[in-house]
Simulated scan of single mutants.
Amino acid sequence: MTSYESTGHLLLTPVDREAPARAVRLRELGLGERTDGELDGWARQVAETLDVPSAGVNFVGEERQFFAGLHHAATAPQSAYPARVLARDHGYCPHVVVRGRALALEDVCDFARFAGNAVVDGSGVRSYLGAPLTDRHGTVLGTLCAVDVVPRRWGTEGLATVKALAAELSDLLGAREDRPR
C-alpha cells in the first residue's frame, strides 16, 4: 500500500509503527547509541565481500539512525554516508526496517521514492543493498547495508550474501544478550 501525507504527496519514508518498541529494545541491548569496533569490523567485512566503498551496521530509532558500525574504503569518496548519525527520514534503511525484508536498489535514481532522498542529493549514493537485523523476538533492530556511488547490479548473489551476513550478525547480537553484563 502506498502512503500519502494529507497534502497528497508521496511519503518518502514509510510510517514506522514499531519505532517506539524498537527504541526500547535497542536501549535494553545497549545498541544504537555508541560506536562499536566489532560492528565496524562487520561493516568492513560487508564492504570487502560485496566490493563496495562503504557499508554499515545501522540501528533505526524513533527520530534518527545510528551507524554503530561503519566502514569507508580508503578510496571511497568522502561523501558516501559520511556521518554515523542520519535523520530517520534520510536513506534507505528505514524502508528495510519497516518492510522487514532486504532491499536491493541497483540505481536509486530509477525510483521516484528513492531518487529524491537527501542521501542521494547530499552524499551521492547511487546504489543500495540492505538486509534487516532481527533479534530473537522478531524485532527488526536495524540493517546491515552496503552502498556505492555508482549504479551496480547486485543480482541474486549479492542479495543472498547480504541476507546471510545479516542473519549471522543477528545471531551474534543475540549471543551478546546472553553474556553477563
Results as ranks from 00 to 15, higher is better:
Arg64His: 13
Thr143Asp: 04
Gly69Pro: 10
Ala76Pro: 05
Ala131Cys: 07
Leu129Ser: 10
Thr143Ser: 12
His72Ala: 13
Leu103Tyr: 07
Asp107Ala: 04
Phe67Thr: 01
Ser127Ile: 06
Phe59Leu: 01
Cys93Ser: 13
Tyr81Asn: 12
Arg126Asn: 03
Val96Phe: 04
Thr75His: 11
Val120Glu: 04
Tyr92His: 07
Asp148Ala: 14
Arg84Asp: 12
Tyr128Gly: 02
Asp148Phe: 03
Val147Lys: 14
Arg126Val: 00
Val108Phe: 04
Gly142Lys: 03
Leu103Asn: 01
Gly116Trp: 01
Leu129Glu: 03
Ala74Leu: 10
Pro132Ala: 14
Asp89Lys: 01
Asn58Glu: 14
Arg136Ile: 00
Ala83Asn: 15
Gly124Leu: 03
Ala80Pro: 01
Val150Glu: 15
Leu105Val: 12
Thr75Ser: 06
Ala80Arg: 11
Arg113Val: 15
Ser79Trp: 03
Ala118Asn: 03
Glu63Gln: 14
Ala73Gln: 06
Leu105Pro: 13
Ala115Glu: 05
Asn117Gly: 04
Ala146Gly: 06
Thr139Lys: 00
Asn58Tyr: 11
Asn117Lys: 10
His90Pro: 00
Asn58Val: 15
Asp148Trp: 08
Arg136Trp: 01
Leu129Asp: 12
Pro132Ile: 11
Cys93Ile: 08
His72Met: 05
Asp121Gln: 13
Pro94Gln: 08
Val149Asn: 10
His72Pro: 00
Phe59His: 00
Gly130Cys: 11
His137Gln: 14
His90Arg: 13
Leu103Gly: 05
Ala146Tyr: 04
His95Gln: 06
Thr143Gly: 06
Leu144Cys: 02
Ala83Pro: 04
Asp89Gly: 10
Arg84Thr: 08
Ala87Phe: 07
Pro82Leu: 08
Asp135Gln: 02
Ala131His: 12
Ala87Ile: 01
Phe114Thr: 14
Ala118Asp: 15
Leu86Phe: 10
Ala115Tyr: 03
Cys145Ile: 02
Leu103Ala: 00
Cys145Glu: 11
Gly142Met: 02
Ala102Phe: 13
Val57Ser: 07
His72Thr: 05
Gly61Cys: 09
Gly100Trp: 14
Gly142Val: 10
Asp148Gln: 09
Arg64Leu: 13
Glu63Asn: 14
Ala118Glu: 15
Ala118Arg: 09
Leu70Gly: 07
Pro82Gln: 05
Phe59Cys: 01
Asn117Glu: 02
Gly116Glu: 08
Gly130Trp: 05
His72Cys: 06
Thr139Arg: 11
Tyr128Arg: 06
Gly61Gln: 07
Val96Cys: 11
Arg101Thr: 13
Val140Trp: 09
Gly138Val: 12
Val120Leu: 06
His71Asp: 10
Pro77Gln: 12
Cys109Trp: 01
Glu62Trp: 07
Arg88Leu: 08
His95Cys: 01
Ala73Phe: 05
Phe67Ile: 07
Leu86Ile: 01
Cys93Tyr: 09
Leu105Phe: 05
